[in-house]
Design a protein around this nucleic acid. Structure first.
Length: 390
DNA sequence: TCTGGGGTCCTAGGACCC
DNA sequence: TCTGGGGTCCTAGGACCC
């Protein structure tokens, strides 16, 4: 069966939602990510009005304020964004059972073999764009191609509100006409590496053997590049759900050196991760800690134990131990992060003897607290330690 | 212009077992 | 006495994505 995929990308998603919810923002530059004065914030999304001033995602907010002081600045309302995301995604599922969401604002729709039902793919793409607009008020850019990988690249070429088609049989031509920095999976480092090795176009890559590319870029990147410029992507997204990770990190407004403040942050991060693990009904045996120092050097430590993390105290204790092991005394800390890796479903069997009596009792108390918080989101049951910080 | 927060995947080396 | 590989699990760091 000849496959057909759409990749749908919401345009300037967070900023567009703000403009939708606040009519007075429409037509104005809107910047989501922080308020002027937030020292270490970065731009999460800039509306197209703001992009005209050179503002873009990942830019330090301080820079954005200089380029576009008159913009509307908001920190962002992520709950609201995921609501709107759901609205959009549910429209997609009317056209295919095979919808693969890859982030809050984009998804692949496998429309292979739907022609009889919904008309030809281009018409279907237009129909979906129109429905999203009328039903949610948001605009999207769409790529249409024979593979997920190509549809993803295509959707990025005409924005906002675009539709880009890669005709069947033209996959290779499409890739060979593409500037190298548009190749999805090639980032800043690889781009520099490519340039340094004399590769300036996708054709430069195309003309080399896979063996040569592997010798320069390594097994995985070399063979990725070889296949990518041929439009060969057997690249599959959203395969089997594997054991993932849950993490939480914060960059501090000012660097930390005080151990009490550090512990407070570690406890808060621990509780956040544990709460989310509880909500996902998963457990983990691996706890990792990340430290970013004032000079931006970043280090990490992790430890895996036989027994899964039991409760917030356990998690906190593990984080403290990792911190003590890794911390270079005296250095200022700009970021702390905590994560549980390789989380697995709580329903997968485990040796019950791992749960000693005291631990399982404490875990049950925490479950009860979480349940309370779920019923009443405003109720924050926190450790006294954290309350002192308010 | 000093660089967020949430993730995924890859690499290379070491320990350990057969 | 010196010398094998393969497999699995773990760790630290890095690249990339939105």
């Amino acid at each position: 069966m000849d496959s057909v995929f759409l990749h749908v990308d919401l345009d300037a998603f967070f900023a567009s939602v703000e403009q939708l919810d606040h009519p007075e923002y429409r037509g104005k530059p809107v910047i989501v990510g922080g308020l002027p004065g937030d020292r270490r914030a970065v731009v999460s999304t800039a509306s197209y009005e703001a992009r005209k001033f050179g503002v873009h995602s990942a830019m330090p907010l301080v820079t954005a304020v200089k380029l576009c002081p008159q913009a509307v600045y908001v920190r962002g309302n992520y709950k609201r964004y995921s609501e709107k995301s759901h609205e959009v995604m549910s429209i997609f599922s009317d056209y295919s059972p095979e919808v693969t969401q890859i982030s809050i604002d984009e998804a692949f729709i496998d429309i292979t073999g739907t022609e009889r039902l919904f008309g030809n793919p281009v018409d279907l793409a237009k129909k979906i764009k129109a429905r999203v607009k009328t039903e949610t008020g948001l605009s999207v850019s769409v790529g249409l191609a024979t593979t997920m990988y190509l549809s993803k690249i295509a959707s990025g070429l005409r924005k906002p509100n675009g539709l880009t088609v890669v005709p069947r049989g033209k996959e290779e031509d499409f890739m060979l006409s593409l500037p190298i920095e548009k190749v999805w999976g090639v980032g800043g480092k690889t781009l520099a590496h490519l340039k340094a090795a004399g590769f300036c176009t996708t054709r430069d890559i195309y003309e080399k053997s896979e063996a040569l590319l592997i010798s320069i870029f390594g097994q995985s990147s070399g063979s990725f590049l070889y296949n990518a410029v041929r439009g060969n992507k057997g690249m599959v997204f959203g395969g089997e759900a594997k054991n993932h990770s849950i993490s939480s990190e914060t960059t501090f407004e000012f660097d930390l050196t005080d151990r009490y403040a550090i512990d407070t942050a570690l406890m808060s991060l621990s509780m956040d991760v544990l709460y989310r693990m509880h909500r996902e009904n998963v457990r983990s045996r691996t706890v990792a800690l990340k430290i970013r120092y004032e000079d931006f050097t970043t280090v990490s430590v992790q430890a895996t134990t036989e027994r899964p993390v039991m409760n917030a105290d356990d998690m906190f204790a593990r984080c403290q131990a990792l911190f003590t092991k890794k911390y270079q005394e005296g250095k200022g800390i700009r970021l702390l992060g905590v994560s549980c890796d390789n989380v697995e479903d709580k329903s997968t069997p485990t040796q019950q003897e791992f749960f000693d009596f005291g631990d399982s009792k404490r875990a049950k108390v925490e479950e009860a607290i979480y349940a309370m918080e779920d019923r009443n989101p405003d109720l924050r049951v926190k450790k006294a330690r954290l309350l002192q910080e308010e």
